[in-house]
């Protein structure tokens, strides 16, 4: 992190600024272009791809969110602008607010759980012998490699009301124990995937299960980079495990955590496939999240791409604000 920022700041400076000699020697390339142009030229192919695949659709989406776009418009009738009607419509809709609540709550809980579980497993992996560590990594990465739809299918079956293994196991628990823990002992036919609350319970389990391995492995990679001397010194000074983790591991891994948190936020804000499978399509409106709501508006018949796009714009803005806020926090703490 620190490296990249100095590079960016020093990139365009003339050699006289007293930078390390390695960099001033590299300047003498005979490409015929002024030096400051080169980075931009190198950026062009990437920018073109991004503009074509991301920027254009995004702009299109924003434009559509101010229009009435149905099947007739897709089939050639010019789309009319409706001003901010799509936005007022979705802001008035109850489903929007419940979707927003679901999206945010789900993201907060899942990001936290994924990071905690991932870090715990990563630290454990660091302690394990090489063989055991490889074994566990291969095992958990298998979960990470499962495609989202298959993840949904797996957990849908596990939590099935009649044939699911979860209800079966809960029924196997001794009655007094189950009573003590959940206040009930009969779990036969318990419908997990009816109610928004239990759907999200299953969804959280499903998403955490599939995404913590990535965190664990990334944390493990970070841990490998921390010099063993630091831990030795801590041990000599009589620091306990928790204290060592807080005072050494956590601060040194901050850049890793920063990236992982942002990635997790982005992934969990727009989870779609797993929810779609668990709900069996966009049927239960109380359990919609913003992506599902956007999809249902835009693509179920009759398609209302305008309001679908408006929801997507709101989701995008929300994500941008959250990410921007978080990045600012990181930059701030780094400067301190």
């Amino acid at each position: 992190m620190a490296n990249t920022s100095t590079l960016a700041r020093g990139g365009g400076n003339p050699p006289a600024s007293g930078r390390p000699p390695t960099r001033s020697r590299r300047r003498a390339k005979a490409s015929g272009m002024p030096e400051w142009v080169i980075p931009y030229v190198l950026l062009i192919p990437g920018l073109l791809v991004i503009a074509g695949l991301l920027l254009y659709p995004t702009i299109q989406m924003v434009i559509m969110s101010f229009q009435k776009v149905g099947l007739r418009q897709i089939r050639g009738v010019p789309a009319e602008s409706v001003g901010t009607e799509n936005y007022t419509q979705i802001f008035e809709s109850e489903i929007f607010w419940s979707s927003l609540r679901n999206t945010v709550t789900f993201a907060v809980v899942t990001v936290a759980l994924t990071l905690i579980l991932g870090t715990a497993v990563g630290t454990l992996l660091n302690r394990l012998s090489k063989k055991m560590s490889t074994f566990v990594v291969v095992g958990i990465m298998a979960a990470w490699a499962v495609p989202p739809v298959a993840q949904g299918v797996i957990w849908r079956w596990l939590f099935d009301a009649d044939a699911g293994i979860i209800n079966w196991v809960l029924n196997l628990l001794p009655d007094w124990f189950s009573e003590l823990l959940f206040g009930r002992s009969d779990w036969t036919g318990e419908p997990w995937l009816n109610d928004a609350f239990t759907i999200y319970l299953v969804l959280i389990v499903c998403v955490v299960w599939a995404s913590f391995p990535f965190i664990a492995v990334s944390v493990l990679a970070g841990l490998k980079g921390i010099p063993a001397e630091l831990y030795e010194a801590a041990r000599v000074d009589g620091s306990g495990a928790w204290r060592t983790f807080r005072k050494i591991t956590l601060p040194l891994l901050r850049p890793v955590f920063a990236v992982l948190t942002i990635l997790s936020i982005i992934w969990n804000f727009k989870v779609f496939s797993q929810l779609y499978v668990l709900m069996g399509g966009p049927n239960n409106r109380e359990a919609f999240n913003l992506s599902m709501f956007s999809f249902a508006e835009a693509f179920r018949s009759p398609p209302k791409m305008g309001s679908g796009a408006a929801i997507a714009v709101v989701l995008t803005l929300l994500l941008l604000v959250v990410t921007a806020f978080y990045v600012r926090q990181i930059v701030k703490t780094e400067e301190m």
């Binding site: 109610d195 049927n283 409106r285 249902a296 018949s301 009759p302």
Partner: peptide, 23 residues
């Protein structure tokens, strides 16, 4: 009405009403 499908199937107005009563 051409909007009936939206009420009856896509938005599932009465299905959702029934769901909230049943639950």
């Amino acid at each position: 009405d051409s909007n009936w499908t939206e009420a009856g199937e896509t938005k599932a107005v009465l299905q959702n009403a029934a769901r909230s009563v049943i639950e």
